[in-house]
Design a protein around this nucleic acid. Structure first.
Lengths: 140, 140
DNA sequence: CTATATAGTTGCATAATACAATTATAAAGT
DNA sequence: ACTTTATAATTGTATTATGCAACTATATAG
């Protein structure tokens, strides 16, 4: 019944995060960490945005995003555009280099997942993706 | 097709970890963080174990687990038992207080998940749990 | 115009982690 | 038997992601 499934989900989520963060800790030499990856993805997929909007999107402190965005800018993956209507605000736009980096990073991540799920059926993959997406929406 | 599903999984996993870690960052006042929770769970569920075995289980550095275990011991959630056959080694056993804490913490976590998934069908919950567990096994 | 709100940055503290050095003990080689 | 090497665990140090608080500069409201 549902109670039992919820307990499984609760526990397996904790384990999942443990596993994924431990991979992240070991691959320090990656060009983009998860934060940078998601930030760049967001800027790419939803157009330019300011630090405030990005922080809200990811439920991070503005200061954290400010630093992450500055790091992306420093690497030349995004450029900063002053808002013509508001002298305080900026927005970020992904650069060609940033797009290249994003695609390459996505490929690496995809390859890792593909490798893990090589024995999974199409149906399982599809369902897992759907459910993950649906679960992520519960955070909004 | 599968490729598309894999891309979804890849991206949604990154988002999921982002969401969950951001919850964890905000609730600093929790009695058990994820590491402590999993560690205590492991010691509870699979009997006493040494730092080395626990570190292998979670793919963490021995030093990290050593500190985490020391913290659990300090709070009285586990006790340290010298290995009679090996003067270097210890194992940890969960205490009654530790069990109490583990159960309470599990309830809190479960309540959070239950709240999120209140509109999900039994089938969805069951499937999500199964797939999460199956996915976690790919890390072994 | 003054007071308050907002966008963003920067300084500081914290927490989880890995890596390196160290200690103590066990096991293996000669 | 003694020396070397391997192993369990701890501790010191550095890094990294993060939040909070203080601050700056600009915008908006009273």
């Amino acid at each position: 019944m549902k109670e039992q499934s919820l307990e499984t989900i609760e526990f397996e989520l904790a384990v999942l995060v443990r596993h994924i963060t431990s991979i992240a800790s070991n691959k320090k030499n990656w060009t983009l960490d998860r934060s940078a990856y998601l930030l760049l993805h967001q800027i790419f997929a939803h157009g330019s945005a300011g630090v405030k909007a990005l922080a809200d999107e990811f439920r991070l402190d503005i200061s954290t995003v400010s630093r992450q965005a500055a790091a992306l800018e420093q690497k030349g993956y995004v450029c900063r555009i002053p808002d013509p209507l508001d002298g305080r605000a900026f927005s970020f736009q992904i650069t060609d280099l940033g797009k290249k980096e994003l695609v390459e990073n996505k490929q690496e991540r995809l390859a890792r997942v593909t490798d893990k799920l090589q024995d999974w059926s199409d149906e399982e993959c599809q369902r897992f993706g759907q459910l993950l997406r649906k679960f992520n929406r519960t955070f909004k």
